[in-house]
Design a protein around this nucleic acid. Structure first.
Length: 421
RNA sequence: GGAGAGAUGGCUGAGUGGUCGAAAGCGGCGGUCUUGAAAACCGUUGUCCCUCUCGCGAGGGACCGUGGGUUCGAAUCCCACUCUCUCCGCCA
C-alpha cells in the first residue's frame, strides 16, 4: 500500500513509477475519489457535531410538545446523516480497494526496462563446472539414482508434480537444514509457519489482489496456500506496534510453497525447474523506516544467500532486476541465478526484494520511533535455499564421470557422512 | 462435530441507554527523593481520519471483536458473523 498523502503531494512520481513498472493504473481517478471522500467526511463530521449538540437538549427540561417537535426534527436530521455516512463508507471502500492496485515506485537507480532482457548482470562468482564427458541433466541423473519420480507425481497430482525419494529427499533435507543453521548463526530466528492463510495475510504481504491468480484457493474455507513463507513471516506482526529496540527482526521461514504457475503454460516444462509445490527457506527482515538501513539489510540478505551458494561450490550470477520485472510493491530487487549445466545456462534460484513501507502499511505493522510517533517499518526478503530448483544446480554440477554425484562438502555432515550418491 | 462461557485501551479489568475515549491496577514516560539504584510519592501516558496552520499546534469526527438494526442519542438493547476459552466426542 502506498501512502495516500504522498500520492496527493506528488502524483507524477507515482504515475511515472507505474509506467516504469508496466502497470496500468488510473492515478487521477484515485485522486478524485480521495478528494470526494474528504469532502464528504468533512460534511458528515460537521453535521454529526451539530446533531450531538442538539441531542443534548433532549435531556433538558422541555414540554411534551417541544420534546416531540425536537425529536422529529432530529429524527430526519439523523436519517440524512446516516445516508451520507453510508456514502462515505462506500467511498472509503472504493478508495481502499483502488489503492491496493497502485504500484510502489521503484528506486531511482533501478534500471528501467520491460522484461528479463533488460535486467543487468552485476557479477559472476565461482566457475562453471567442467566435464570431460557428456554430462546428464537432472532428469536423467534423478532417474538413474532414484532421486525423484515425476511420472508418478503427474499420475497422482497432475502436471508439474513430483515425488522426491531416497537420497533425493535426503539431499533436500540436508540443504534446508544447512541453510537454517547458517541463518541461525547470523541472528535469524527460524520458523515453521502456517501454509494455509486468510486473505488478509495475502493482502497484507502484497500478493493480493494483484497476483491472486498465482495462489491456490481453498474456497470452501476462504483460505489460501502461500507461495512463500514471506507471506506468513511478514503477517506474523500484522496489526501490531513493535518496539523500535527490537528492530531489525531477522526471521527465517522453512515451509512448503505452492504456486499455480498460471500463465506459464508450456514454459520450463521439463524436469523439476518449475513445479507447483516446493520447499524453501526464506529470509525476512523488518527494519526501521530508513532507506539507508534498508539498503544495508538488502545487501545482508544478498550476501547470506551468496555465502550459502558459494559454500555449496556453485557457479552463479547476481542480476539487478529491471523495473518491468518487479512486482507491485518492490522498490529494489536482485535475482541470483545459479548455473545449471542441463539448461546450459543460469536459472533463477533466489530473489531479493526491498519494499520500503509497502508491506507494513498493508499489514498495519508499526513501531514507535524515538520521537514517539508511530511509523511503518521497512520490510525485505530473500530466498536462502529453494528446492528442488537448487537441487538441479547441485546434482547437475556435481556429477562425475563414473555416473555418481558428489555431495558438496558442507552438506556431507547433513547426509550422515555420505560423500557421494 | 455437541454443550457452555466470553471478546473493552500495551496488559489485567470495571462499566447495562446521554455527563464514557471509557474507572482502577499494572506497565511505559517525566519528576521529587538518593552518591547511584530500588522503594515511596507527584505528574503524564491509545489509535485512525478530517479541517485550519509554513510549523509548534488548534478544532472536529470515528473507534469498546466484525457487520447490520433499534433510538434524538449505543461500549451498554436486538440480529448475524468471526474468533477465543472450557468440557465432551473424534483424531496425526
Amino acid at each position: 500500500m502506498i501512502d495516500i498523502r504522498l500520492l496527493r503531494e506528488n502524483p507524477d512520481y507515482f504515475k511515472e513509477g507505474a509506467k516504469k513498472k508496466g502497470f496500468d493504473v488510473d492515478i487521477d481517478a484515485v485522486l478524485e475519489l480521495d478528494a470526494k471522500r474528504r469532502a464528504v467526511q468533512a460534511s458528515v463530521d460537521r453535521r454529526k457535531k451539530e446533531l450531538q449538540d442538539k441531542s443534548k437538549r433532549m435531556k433538558g427540561p422541555l414540554s411534551d410538545d417541544e420534546r416531540r417537535a425536537l425529536q422529529s426534527e432530529l429524527k430526519s436530521f439523523s436519517r440524512a446523516i446516516k445516508d451520507d455516512e453510508a456514502k462515505l463508507r462506500e467511498l472509503e471502500e472504493e478508495l481502499k480497494e483502488k489503492l491496493l492496485y497502485i504500484p510502489n515506485p521503484p528506486m531511482d537507480d533501478v534500471p528501467v526496462g520491460s522484461d528479463e532482457s533488460d535486467n543487468v548482470e552485476l557479477r559472476r562468482e565461482g566457475k562453471p563446472p567442467e566435464f570431460d564427458f557428456e554430462p546428464l541433466d537432472h532428469l536423467d541423473l534423478g532417474l538413474k539414482h532414484g532421486l525423484f519420480d515425476i511420472e508418478r507425481g503427474v499420475k497422482v497430482a497432475g502436471s508439474r508434480s513430483y515425488y522426491l525419494k531416497g537420497y533425493g529427499l535426503m539431499l533436500e533435507n540436508a540443504l534446508m537444514r544447512y541453510a537454517i543453521d547458517v541463518l541461525m548463526e547470523r541472528g535469524f530466528t527460524p520458523f515453521s509457519t502456517p501454509v494455509i492463510v486468510k486473505e488478509d495475510a495475502m493482502i497484507g504481504s502484497g500478493y493480493f489482489p494483484v497476483g491472486r491468480e498465482e495462489a491456490y484457493a481453498i474456497e470452501k474455507d476462504d483460505l489460501y496456500l502461500i507461495g512463500t513463507s514471506e507471506v506468513t513471516l511478514v503477517s506474523y506482526h500484522m496489526g501490531e506496534i513493535l518496539n523500535e529496540e527490537d528492530l531489525p527482526l531477522r526471521y527465517a521461514g522453512y515451509t512448503t510453497c505452492f504456486r499455480r504457475e498460471a500463465g506459464s503454460y508450456g514454459k520450463d516444462v521439463r524436469g523439476l525447474y518449475r513445479v507447483h509445490q516446493f520447499q524453501k527457506v526464506e529470509q525476512v527482515i523488518i527494519c526501521r523506516n530508513d532507506e539507508k538501513e534498508m539498503l544495508k539489510y538488502h545487501n545482508e540478505l544478498l550476501s547470506n544467500a551468496e555465502y550459502i551458494i558459494k559454500s555449496l561450490g556453485l557457479h552463479y550470477r547476481v542480476v539487478e532486476v529491471c523495473t518491468g520485472e518487479m512486482g507491485l510493491g518492490q522498490v529494489k530487487k536482485h535475482d541470483i541465478e545459479c548455473y545449471m549445466p542441463g539448461r546450459g545456462g543460469f536459472g533463477e534460484t533466489h530473489s531479493c526484494s526491498s519494499f520500503r513501507d509497502f508491506q507494513a502499511r498493508r499489514a498495519r505493522i508499526r513501531y514507535k520511533n524515538s520521537s514517539g510517533k508511530n511509523v511503518y517499518p521497512y520490510t525485505l526478503n530473500n530466498t536462502a535455499v529453494a528446492s528442488p530448483r537448487l537441487l538441479i544446480a547441485i546434482i547437475e554440477s556435481y556429477q562425475t564421470k563414473d555416473g555418481s554425484i558428489k555431495i558438496p562438502d558442507v552438506l556431507v555432515p547433513y547426509m550422515n557422512g555420505l560423500k557421494k550418491i
